[in-house]
Design a protein around this nucleic acid. Sequence first.
DNA 1: TGGCGTCTAAACAAGG
DNA 2: GCCTTGTTTAGACGCC
Length: 679
Amino acid sequence: MMQESGTEATSNGPANENGGASVEGVPREGRPKSATPSAEVTAADLLHLQQHQALQMARQILLQQQQQSQSQQLQSQQNTGRKSPKANDKQQSLQVPVSVAMMTPQVITPQQMQQILQQQVLSPQQLQVLLQQQQALMLQQQQLQEFYKKQQEQLHLQLLQQQQQQQQHAGSKQSKEQVSAQQLAFQQQLLQVQQVQQQHLLNLQRQGLLSIQPGQPGLPLHSLTQGMIPTELQQLWKEVTNAHVKEEHNNSSSNNGHRGLDLSSPAPPKNPLLNQHASTNGQYMSHKREGSTLEEPSPHSHPLYGHGVCKWPGCEAVFDDFQSFLKHLNNEHALDDRSTAQCRVQMQVVQQLELQLAKDKERLQAMMTHLHVKSTEPKATPQPLNLVSNVTLSKSAPEASPPLSLPQTPTTPTAPLTPLSQSHSVITATNLHSVGPMRRRYSEKYNMPISPDISQNKEFYMNTDVRPPFTYASLIRQAILESPEKQLTLNEIYNWFTRMFAYFRRNAATWKNAVRHNLSLHKCFVRVENVKGAVWTVDEIEFQKRRPQKISGSPALVKNIQTSLGYGPTLSAAFQASMAENNIPLYTTASIGSPTLNSLANAIREEMNGAMDHGNSNGSDSSPGRSPLPAMHHISVKEEPLDPEDHDGPLSLVTTANHSPDFDHHRDYDDEQGHDDML
DNA sequence: TGGCGTCTAAACAAGG
DNA sequence: GCCTTGTTTAGACGCC
């Protein structure tokens, strides 16, 4: 009703500050005190490990290729004496990016990404990390494409040079030899390119990317857009060799076959002269053999050979020794029609995967963009890490309908985005229990400590217009407990709300009224006349009294609560299962604050120890009367509401003396007094 | 179905 | 008079 001009101005101050930080807050500030660092590390380690391994492998391969390339080019230059050193430098310089580019699809696959998204708790920070990796991937892919293009251009250039040489030295026997040697070098280069491509494919295959076997239909050739580049290179190679063989060996079936198989290369020879410079001698067959033997990078290992099995797509031939495999490789998987076709299919597969990856990256980008931009689209409101999908502060009032969108798509928290969004299974682990705006307030019903959640999702709540899944009472209590003196004025409480939650930066009249209403309504909030005026404190006992102390319902629900607590990644599965089986309540309260993993586990363990006696006894129903608190005899004395007037100072620590060995959450609460810095 | 807890909206009063 | 703070009531909703 009343405008919050005064309080709004003050409350918006910190809100604006945070709003400014919201742009970069999420990626910049991690969750150092999160209860799920292990999950983050796992996800990051997985990616980094893959990248590192792939990088090492690619480096080795490229190192070999570079050495080979250098020696070949040196030989070529010695033979021709005309090769442009500039082109040579270019060639060598281009080797570097390809080493990165080759491994690009290995860094992270769409499957891996989805898996990560499904299995890991993805915080905005994690998403940001993934996004950055994806962006790096895109860069690397661009480098790969550029490399292919440059290679192609270079090959064309060399072809032109060869042609010129042919024209200049036509009829000359000496020149013919030079041209032959030059073409030999050129073919070797082509083979190198092919080798790079094949290594690329093989690496992809090793990474499990290529599950589609060659010959598998469904991959339209025209879909090979980017793949046209390597295919064109192959076409180029075949043009050269085919023309050459046509001239020298008119009945070379393999070359004719190549030509016939070049269906996937819609691009005709870029240079019509390609068909005219075929004046090589009969070295094609030998180079063809070289082309096949190029797949023998090491006498001890081979990318296509593993566990005695030929890993050529669709082959799986078994060999007793490596030499047999090499023979088989040279004979069965030489550069013939079938191998070319298989390789081409593999290229298509790779291209499809790359396209898929690009799409997924685009989705991820959109997700990240959406997450970092203050949501004005309620349906696209994301969910925070470990956030119980059920909105606590969901309101039935139409005015607040936008934020209500949070629970409306529990299974698609980041609504706009497709399958990947659904893979936030961790986030949505609890979603099965909530569809639509519901009023479950886990923080209330299950004593879910809001501190860990807020701590973990601090940036999220600060930057995203999402209703926190906590009751006003819980939030008020949290705000008060976070204060150094455990007391806040109403305006300070307002400020805390606006500072900590983007959601409370609007509709101030509504939620402020609710805050005031809660402060007045709940006995747990004690108004104290202070020197500075009236401050509000928390009567923790009253706060605990007004809520059931156990979790009722199925273990699945318990698990959901655990997930919402953010302990899932921290606790072992057995531990969680044990808790679930025992219906252990997780009313760890805010005492955990910003715990380390150990302290967190210990706290929960203590909770278990303290709650075991209660948890099993009343596993099915929850009634306030059966709250563990009644066991705290001395607390019952505290039943009488405190008269604020009887206190000269804050009353926030009324409960400090009320320790019960049976209820560690109270002890934890007291412990919390010492580490309220979590937020 | 009723009790309970919660949220929202509103009215009202007191004080600055 | 305006605004903030605080209290109270009523209605609605969800859960048990």
